[in-house]
Every structure is written in C-alpha cells, then in structure tokens.
Design a protein around this nucleic acid. Sequence first.
DNA 1: CAACGGACCTGCCTGC
DNA 2: TGCAGGCAGGTCCGTT
Length: 271
Amino acid sequence: MPELPEVETTRRGIAPFLLGDRVERVEVREPRLRWPVPADLDQCLAGTEMLSLDRRGKYLLARNVRGTLIAHLGMSGSLRVLTRPEPPSPHDHVDILMAGGTVIRYRDPRRFGCLLWTGGDPFDHPLLRDLGPEPLSDGFDGAYLHRCSRGRRAPVKGFVMDARVVVGVGNIYASEALSMAGIHPLRAAGRVSRQRYDVLAGAIRDTLERSIRLGGTTLRDFVNPAGEPGYFEQTLRVYGRAGQPCRTCGAPLRQVVVGQRSTFYCASCQR
DNA sequence: CAACGGACCTGCCTGC
DNA sequence: TGCAGGCAGGTCCGTT
C-alpha cells in the first residue's frame, strides 16, 4: 500500500496525537511482523513523552529520550488514530496507548511491515544506513541520477525504485514519474541522458509532492490515520490503466512486468 | 559490483 | 457454491 506520499500522510496524521503526549503503555497482540516486535517495546516507550516523529524514505522514526521506534508499513500496513476505544480487528497487531486517552493502532494483514527499536542513532541502523537521498531534498537532482546510473544495464524503472539510489519511489510513482518524463520504463538506466534525468528528477519530485497534497493514493484500502482516503488515484496517468487511452496522445496504455512488478506506460509518448 | 529470483504473508478477485 | 490460481502499494537475502 504505502509509498512515500502515503507514509508522509500517515506521519502528518498521527503527529498531533503522538507528540506532546506521554505513552501509557504498548499492547502487542501479534509480534510476528517481518521481524519480531521487540519483547521489551513497552518498557522502551511506556512513561515517556514522544519528542519527534520523522520520516526517512518509507520508514517512520518516533523518538523519545531513550531511543527511537522504527516503523515500516510494508505492503498492507496502516496506522490509525482512535480517539475512542474500538475493539481490535484480527490484523490490528499493536496499540500504542497515550496518556491522554488516544490510541495509535498498527494494522498489517500481510505482516510485511515492522516495528523495531534502537537506542542508538537510527540513521546508523542497518535498515537505514545505506538508503539513498530523499527525493524531495536538495541533494536529489538529474546530475545525481545520471552519475549513479552509469554502467547500469537494468531497466530505468527498477533503478529509480532502488532505495539505495533514491528512497520512497514505489511501484505506482515509478510508472507515473517515467510517464511524466516521457522515458520508456524498459530503457537501460545507463542509457538515459543527463538532460532526461533532469526531467525525470523533476517528475519524481512533482509526482510525490502532488500526491502528498492530495493525501496519497487510495487504490484498494489506503486511508489516512483519521480514516479518510487519498485523492491522487483520480490523477494517475498510467498506473492501473492498461488498455485505456493515454491522457496525452490517446494511444492505449500498455502493461509489462519489470522486475516482477506490473509496469504501465504509453509506447508512443515514452521512449 | 550488478542483477535476478525467491522469500515472507493475507485478502481479494477471476474463472472454471 | 467451491476452489485453484493469480495478483497486490515492499524489500531483504542468497545466488549467479
């Protein structure tokens, strides 16, 4: 489900309820996520105030005086804010109960996500250490992508989805950004010009920023922490639109599999 | 190193 | 109606 815009939407949604309040306790009903939820997570969080909630790629980082909670939503994860008690559904694995009475509820049917704890610098954690730049930061531009891509023969679509290259670009937004930039998803990353990487870097940035503004993409079930859907789906150019007309030239959009992921593009607009 | 396939899970939809 | 098969927004890990 969540790519960068959905994770950022989630961060903004829970921040007002998590920050400036004290954690009462943590209730773990199902610790078997991608990696086990630490057995002492409650001791790490209980009684402390959350000091900051940041995002690094698709990871959420919630810091208190003792360390940092590292959260990832995987494919099907979500965090919701409950202002009144609600009985947990089967996949509501973890609750963070705040002193003020609100509950931050972690749900993840497929359990590809994780909730981990680190007492050290979270950016030194093995999961975060090797991540590439944030696509909305100044360090990310066409010159960087061009430099990074030299000698790479694999498709450019997989290249921009590689978190060591740039974080946060998942399967939807990779197709969308390549469509905006007019680049064929199967083109070898090393055979895209510097000029075209300038356009692509801008397209990635624009696509992600626009989606954040619209509250993310709701394909099946994404809702923000308040339970509201995102509206970016209505503006998708290619994702999920195989056979339908290209919004630019009218040609039927195509679907191929790249690196085991469905990929959508216009054969006449993207070269 | 870069590149690829498999693995981890459940739910939902399609077609027989 | 039941069931098998395929597919889904991620990403780590082992092998070539």
